[in-house]
Design a protein around this nucleic acid. Structure first.
Length: 569
RNA sequence: GGGACCGUAGUCCAGCCUGGAAGGAUGUCGGUUUGGGGUACCGGUGGUCCCGGGUUCAAGUCCCGGCGGUCCCA
């Protein structure tokens, strides 16, 4: 059942709507995406049809990042264990699933761990960031790395979805203040949505993860979730505001123009030479300043009225001067320190994206790939009945191939041992968008027959004169991707049901959909939901939707926000 | 983290309960035929029965451990 060859296609059970999980497991093998016979759990081998698509997706992303000013870096695959341990929350989140590396054949007595395989690259990169960053002029630092990371998954693995080796692109940035870092978070979501929707037609929503589910070491995490045909959420991209958690652990410090640091919407802080902390809060027309010592004890507090100014930022010279003067005059402070920890973000997209493409666009005949990422975009299939015809038709195929090869990834299948019908089915299975059949008919009329991959039905055929081929292709490709996108949009329309009571949820549990419901935002309640319904609380909208006049549909206490709940991968 | 099921030819499987000669289909190779939606036939080829240990005169089959896979629950 697990490793079907093309030959057994007729017998195989491949109904996406009846048993999605089985359909997925079969399709990724028979459509030449992966070969998971490699004898390590969670580490399959990727065939060209799969690896090419993964690389292409990551290339699209790299281009988008570079347009915004990101630059590629390469860091080693090994991280010294000592460095990995530095950020306490981070290590808590990852230590149980890292691969530990011993530098040579381990001797029984020497069990000391020296290195780990990177499970994600924050720690190794930020070790270097602390050496590179000196001045505000070094910021923002915008880096990305397309690489592999390793996580020791012990339980169920699923090709492309959960494995021990992950191909992905991770971006890491450092900024002078919170505003700048949050702008980056916004931009990262824009870039990712462009990749998911504009290029790959994957419908998705951005969700603010609840605190108990955020990235280890982050202040908050936003995730792009899509929903697969079985109604389960699949996370396909994440972006994290790391705040100053890592810069404090790794000592990533820069010297700024001025000493004030924006730490919240209307809060600043600053430090004096003794490392005493000033907290400056601006509320409507008041400015409040508090001074804390090293033990976080309040030493002095002061407030006064100011003219309200909309622009609360370090760039507002008026405001900064005002604060400076108060501190100088009322707190007798000569010098505030300009050295600050950087604000950081990190975000990533992995090959999981391909599993979403396969799951959402594919049908019972096989894969359907967006034109841009298909390894073979156009397959030419010669059809002939005699030796004499064969050479003429192959020559004609070569002519068509030469016409297309500059612009498209095109291939002629000259294999005589397979019938044309067999080939039609094989390339549809592999998700090749366009087929060009060339036989006697086309040869005589100087045309080609283009067949376009259709969802769950036979290809649509167009007979086109050779001189119109390039123009017609342009048009058909746009139409192909447009249909793909419209189908995906329609697919997603009824995937999330917004409801206010538990009965409606219970009645729809078997409908392969997700839900949006009023929720109390308590972790304990989320745990109960998981236990009782196997549903995860995925989080709120990025700007949470208010549910203050509602009751949490699970525990019936006052609700705070609407959250997304559903089964998940 | 807990549980269920599974691993036999390149692939998909039967055989295991009840121990006694390694099977089928498909692929692959040679040939004939066929070719516009998975041609048909003839002949050949293909096995560390996942690995290690145990029980037994005898293990694919029973027992234990590991590796790998699928699913369910947390």
């Amino acid at each position: 059942m697990y490793h079907r060859d093309f030959s057994t296609m007729k017998e195989s059970i491949l109904d996406k709507n009846v048993n999605f999980s089985e359909w997925y497991n079969n399709i990724i093998r028979i459509s030449k995406i992966i070969d998971d016979r490699y004898p390590i759990k969670g580490m399959p081998v990727y065939y060209p049809n799969g690896y090419f698509a993964i690389r292409k997706i990551l290339n699209i992303l790299e281009n988008e990042l570079e347009k915004y000013g990101f630059e590629p870096y390469w860091f080693p695959i090994l991280i010294p264990y000592e460095i990995f341990k530095r950020e306490s929350e981070h290590i808590k989140g990852f230590e149980s699933e890292v691969f530990y590396v011993t530098p040579s054949k381990p001797v029984e007595e020497e069990k000391e761990i020296k290195y780990i395989l990177r499970p994600t690259s924050e720690t190794e990169m930020y070790y270097m960031f602390s050496l590179w960053i000196r001045s505000y002029r070094d910021l923002p630092l915008l880096t990305y790395m397309t690489n592999t990371v390793y996580r020791y998954e012990t339980k169920a693995t699923k090709p492309l979805v959960r494995g021990r080796e992950i191909l992905w692109n991770e971006a890491h940035t450092a900024h002078k203040d919170l505003d700048d870092a949050e702008k980056m978070i916004k931009k990262s979501m824009e870039i990712y949505s462009k990749v998911f929707w504009d290029h790959l037609s994957i419908p998705h929503i951005w969700i603010r993860r609840p605190d108990w589910d955020k990235f280890a070491g982050a202040d908050y995490t936003f995730a792009a979730d899509t929903i697969l045909p079985d109604g389960k959420f699949l996370q396909i991209g994440t972006t994290h505001l790391l705040g100053r958690n890592f810069s404090k652990a790794f000592n990533i410090i820069f010297e700024d123009e001025h000493p004030f640091i924006k730490i919240d919407k209307n809060k600043f802080e600053a430090f004096n030479e003794n490392n005493y902390r000033y907290e400056i809060e601006i509320i409507e027309d008041k400015i409040k300043i508090r001074l804390y010592d090293n033990n976080k004890e309040l030493i002095k507090s002061y407030e006064e009225k100011i003219e309200f100014d909309e622009d609360i930022s370090e760039d507002n010279k008026n405001l900064i001067n005002k604060i400076n003067n108060i501190i100088k005059n009322k707190f007798n402070e000569d010098k505030l320190v300009n050295k600050k920890f950087v604000w950081q973000t990190s975000f990533g997209i992995s090959m999981r994206t391909l599993s979403a493409v396969i799951s959402i666009h594919g049908d019972n005949k096989g894969l359907i790939l967006p034109f841009e990422i298909s390894h073979i975009q156009i397959i030419i299939i010669p059809i002939y009945y005699s030796e004499d015809e064969r050479s003429k038709i192959l020559k004609y195929c070569e002519d068509v191939y030469n016409l297309l090869k500059e612009k498209y990834r095109v291939k002629i299948d000259k294999d005589d041992t397979k019938s044309p019908g067999w080939k039609f089915n094989q390339y549809e299975l592999m998700g090749v968008p366009f087929r060009i059949s060339i036989g006697k008919r086309e040869l005589e009329k100087n045309t080609v027959t283009i067949s376009v991959r259709q969802y769950d039905s036979k290809s649509k055929n167009y007979e086109i004169k050779l001189e119109n081929l390039l123009n017609e292709l342009d048009r058909l490709i746009i139409e192909y991707d447009k249909e793909l996108k419209e189908r995906a949009k329609k697919y997603f329309e009824n995937k999330i049901l917004k409801i206010d009571n538990l009965k409606d949820l219970e009645n729809n549990l078997d409908k392969n959909i997700a839900f949006k419901v009023p929720f109390c935002m308590k972790e304990e309640c989320a745990k109960n939901i998981k236990e009782k319904y196997s549903l995860d609380v995925r989080g709120t909208d990025i700007i949470p939707e208010d549910a203050k006049n509602k009751k949490c549909i699970f525990c019936n206490t006052d609700a705070k926000y609407y959250v997304y709940v559903g089964k998940s991968y």
